[in-house]
């Protein structure tokens, strides 16, 4: 049994094999996995919101926002010597639909867009993704194989 490092909502964690990174309950949140295949180091963030620009507090978990999470992942992985970073992402579902669809209801789609834009800006390629839709996901990242295992209720396990 491999050790599993759990990433809670708004957290970011970095590790290396054989430890697995796992986050449960990605609804509108987006799980961002960033890794260096050669050095076998990877990190995962459980992003809740697109931008820290709207925060009303001075101190917050860096994993909470797409911008601060990606900045932190890039910085920490580069400090560990990674220079060939790739990403895999999952989540950003729209689970509830209201008749008067407000901004908060589309937070999943906005999270996915923010994550992709920021990764592109950093020149980090998104190798694969399982985003959008209307189902929550639980994801496990295996750094060794770079496999991202995605589970959702009512569908088969996917490896992306």
């Amino acid at each position: 049994m491999k050790e599993v490092l759990k990433v809670g909502m708004s957290e970011v964690k970095i590790t290396h094999p054989p430890t697995l990174l796992k986050t449960t309950g990605l609804g509108s949140c987006v799980g961002v996995c960033m890794y260096d295949k050669k050095l076998k180091i990877g990190g995962m963030a459980h992003v809740m919101l697109p931008s820290s620009a709207n925060t009303k507090v001075k101190e917050f978990n860096v994993g909470k926002y797409a911008d601060t999470a990606i900045e932190f992942l890039v910085k920490s992985l580069k400090e560990k010597g990674c220079n060939d970073l790739k990403a895999k992402i999952a989540g950003g579902a729209q689970m509830f639909t209201f008749s008067n669809s407000s901004d908060i209801m589309n937070v999943g789609a906005r999270n996915v867009k923010a994550v992709k834009d920021l990764l592109a800006k950093q020149g980090i390629k998104v190798i694969s993704e399982d985003t959008g839709g209307n189902k929550g996901r639980t994801i496990t990242f295996e750094i060794d194989s770079c496999n991202l295992i995605v589970r959702a209720i009512g569908s088969e396990e996917k490896i992306i």
């Binding site: 909502m9 449960t24 309950g25 990605l26 189902k135 209720i153």
Partner: peptide, 10 residues
């Protein structure tokens, strides 16, 4: 109908 943890995201 979904995972409790994903529901609480909203």
């Amino acid at each position: 109908i979904d995972m409790a943890g994903a529901i609480i995201n909203i």
